[in-house]
Computed example of a mutant assay.
Amino acid sequence: MRTTYISKAAQQIKPSGIRKFFDLASTMEGVISLGVGEPDFVTAWNVREASILSLEQGYTSYTANAGLLSLRKEISAYLNKRFHLDYAPDDELIVTVGASQALDIAVRAILDPGEEVLIPEPCFVAYEALVSLAGGKAVHIHTNAERGFKASAADFEAVLTERTKAIILCTPSNPTGSVYTKKELEEIAAFAEQHDLIVIADEIYAELTYDEAYTSFAEIAGMKKRTILISGFSKGFAMTGWRLGYVAAPAYLRDPMLKIHQYSMMCAPSMAQFAAEEALKNGLEDVEKMKKSYRRRRNVFVDSLNEIGLDCHQPGGAFYAFPSVKKTGMSSEQFAEELLIAEKVAVVPGNVFGPSGEGYIRCSYASSLEQLQEALVRMKRFVQKTGAVQ
């Protein structure tokens, strides 16, 4: 009899720290949740209607593995108009089951056992797990608030080895909301070129930037050939439950990802694809309205966090604030747990996003302004009780 039937990789990955606090909060009444990164907007009616119409017309079968060609054409046109990117619908795009699946097939397509991926952190909790499940090794790059939680080419250089294969770069960042400037991306691009690295650019929050024009990593001169661009409809288009994303990459990178996608997923749901097509055709005004609302909430929420003594840098994108709780003398996890119990406000401890996140908490401001203001009242009351923040 075997001692275990579970693979070492599955045994070693940790459950999501985000879900831990979300699940705990869901058992309590009167909780204001700033935990899960999900828009509070409902998917636009015309987008929902397009999905319903596809069902009524009987479009319930498989699509092409890479997704509806009509949708890939819309994605191609959108990327060109919005981000000045040129991807061929036929052989440089795959429609996936969320951006998460796109990340999964990306790392599995490029990594051999033991190869290393450089990941600035704090970072999205899935990166390390997906790299490990693909047989690779995640190498974390420490960042700090003083530098806007962004890594430099010098930071990457310091941990480079002969096994380094790729970089995962998320901009705007989850959990910090930091956005890399064009100049910063150019420096990282030069490093990637010098050392022949692939860059997996997670740009799922690209639609949600507030202060400066957004630059896609693939837009940097010479970078399309070594970039796997990950995006989707969950965040900017308020379509989290539809589970629809996409990957854009040159054919030599896209083709092996498509093979993995064929065997592991077949294709994304057809009704979600019809919805996404409508979102790109007639939903961009809704995206802009949501973006303006998030920007207003960001300004109110971040300013208020600083006023109550939770120092917070100004996030340039996404819908997260990442304030410091160091003045309270509590760890990230202790602060989050005690805040939830005492004041019924759910946040995510920063340490779940990597060691650089210790001493911080992630707060999603994708909630109504009224809820955010009530959460701030409760948080102020809580930090004043500690006596560490006046």
Rank of each mutant, 00 (worst) to 15 (best):
E121T: 13
V117D: 07
R226Y: 02
E337F: 03
C363D: 05
G58P: 05
G317L: 00
A158Q: 09
A99M: 05
A321V: 10
S132G: 09
K235G: 08
P250F: 07
A279E: 00
I198A: 06
E49M: 09
T96M: 03
H261D: 00
N46K: 15
T63E: 02
V347A: 10
Q273H: 00
L169N: 02
P256E: 01
K182L: 06
S33Y: 03
M290Y: 05
T96N: 02
A10L: 13
K224P: 08
E92H: 02
V125Y: 06
S364G: 14
A375F: 08
K344D: 01
D91Y: 12
D286Y: 07
H140I: 10
L85K: 13
L118A: 15
S178K: 00
A248W: 00
V383R: 09
A276H: 04
S54R: 04
A249F: 05
V287C: 07
I52R: 15
K183F: 04
A158N: 07
G37W: 01
E374W: 00
E333G: 09
S367G: 13
Y180T: 06
K225I: 00
N65Y: 10
E128G: 06
D40F: 15
L185W: 02
N351S: 14
K235N: 15
G241V: 06
T3I: 14
V95R: 00
Q273G: 00
K385P: 02
I110N: 11
P269W: 08
P250V: 10
E333A: 13
A66N: 09
Y263A: 10
T176S: 15
Y205T: 14
E186A: 14
D311E: 14
F149E: 04
P15I: 12
D311L: 11
P122I: 13
K182W: 05
S304W: 07
S264A: 14
G35V: 00
N80T: 14
V348M: 11
Y205V: 12
K183W: 08
L284N: 14
V348T: 15
L185P: 03
P175N: 11
E338R: 08
L258I: 01
S178A: 10
G317P: 02
K281H: 03
Y87W: 11
K150N: 06
E121N: 11
L339M: 03
E162V: 12
A275T: 01
A77Q: 10
K81E: 15
V247Q: 04
R2L: 12
L118W: 13
A366I: 10
I52Q: 12
E56F: 14
Y62N: 10
M290W: 03
T215H: 07
V47R: 01
L79K: 08
M266Q: 06
E187W: 04
Q11M: 10
E29Y: 01
E285G: 13
R243P: 02
L71Y: 00
L93V: 01
R72P: 00
I168W: 02
K182D: 10
R297G: 11
